[in-house]
Design a protein around this nucleic acid. Structure first.
Length: 70
DNA sequence: TAGGCCATCTGGTCCT
DNA sequence: AGGACCAGATGGCCTA
């Protein structure tokens, strides 16, 4: 009665879920490491408090555009 | 107290 | 099958 392939929902055990959560945590950690690297490369005033991720991205865009213009 | 930022969990989809 | 990637939901913390 339904059209299209019946897509099987992947069943996940608690253990697999926990493992997946850990992997995800690691993945986000490495993402944040990359953000830290970018933060260091983007020009800012020393007294300024740490840029958020979105601020880092936006400032990087502005900075790159500026340098390209030069 | 509302809004911004972030960590984490979760369940999809895509890739190997 | 299982991992990587992704986006939505949720809750905590901090500051205007």
């Amino acid at each position: 009665s339904h059209s299209g392939r019946s897509r099987r929902k992947r069943v996940i055990t608690t253990v697999q879920r926990q493992a997946a959560n850990i992997r995800e945590r690691k993945r986000m950690f490495s993402l944040n490491e990359a953000f830290d690297e970018l933060r260091k490369k983007v020009p800012t005033f020393a007294y300024e408090k740490r840029l958020s991720r979105i601020e880092t991205l936006r400032l990087a865009i502005v900075y790159i555009s500026f340098m390209t213009e030069l």
